[in-house]
Amino acid sequence: MIQAGQPHSEPILSVRHLTTRFRTDLGLVTAVDDVSFDIHAGETVGIVGESGCGKTVTSKSIMRLLPERVSRIDPASKIMFRGMNLATASESRMRSVRGDQIAMIFQEPMTSLNPVFRIGWQIEEALKYHTDLNRAQRRQRSIEMLRLVEIPNPERRISEYPHQLSGGMRQRVMIAIALCCEPDILIADEPTTALDVTIQAQILNLMEGLKRKLNTAIMLITHNLGVVAQVCDRVLVMYAGRVIESGTVHDIFHRPQHPYTQALLESIPKRGRREHGKRLPTIPGIVPSLHHLPAGCRFAERCRFRQDQCVDHEPELLETSDGRAYRCFFPITQAPMAPTIGGSDVPA
């Protein structure tokens, strides 16, 4: 029972009933709807789900980085971190949490790096804020950080502007900034999306190292299920603002309960001659608009197991005794779960 849920340790981050709404021209939308999960120190939790399902909004809610003018975290939401409720913490409180204790690598490196400042300056700013290093030390440390994330010629790159770097290099600069102050929790929103696999392997190694060395908890948002399979302990599957399934990485990949999770896994391109150039299995239809959410199960319109009940009522998130949860009236396997969850089939 090492990785699966780690029931004996206190979670470092505990999210309960997180609900985040946006004001739009077409009215109020609930982008994240009653999301609850825990992350423990030293654990990697993956969040997967269709584009627009609320992964980034979930992480930006935790960081309180959403535009205040148009967004609102429901007052009943709880984001517990070191005895603080981040959902209601003051902005000055949040400023000391952000970057220092919880760091985030953003999905869009180009828009989160400031285009008018040299990248060295941007790293040094982060160091200035979060460390006591003097100017020369900060410069030195910035160069080291760039070298750590395998940016060639860091001494030179440091005086370049973001547009002079390739997409992958910009992403690595973002990672360098996030790692500057050795955070307790690292939220990585698609950290390897723009990278080729050899660099991706390095970044994953880098994050693994951080986790081992500092017991950092990692929340990893990615659409790359290979990466999830390789590094995550637990997985949260989201759909249209809801958590629709969660469990250990083994359960999710080998014993998915929710039809969406199953369909998601099937749509990965398979290697090999027989599959080459074949159309891939897809999920028919599209995600419901947040403006017109169905009364029943949010996946019902696209689900191959749909019954009348699914259209009329939304299933509750059902938590089972073995630490998994799913939101479906007709889960894939009704059979009792094999008693191996978190046991021998989980490599250390």
Binding site: V197, T198, Q200, A201, Q202, L204, A229, Q230, H250, D345
Partner: peptide, 17 residues
């Protein structure tokens, strides 16, 4: 060799250059 396989049972040390 650096490409992760889509199966948690087939975890492998990824090729690190």
């Amino acid at each position: 060799g650096a490409n992760p396989i889509d199966d948690p049972d087939q975890r492998r040390p990824l090729t690190i250059l």
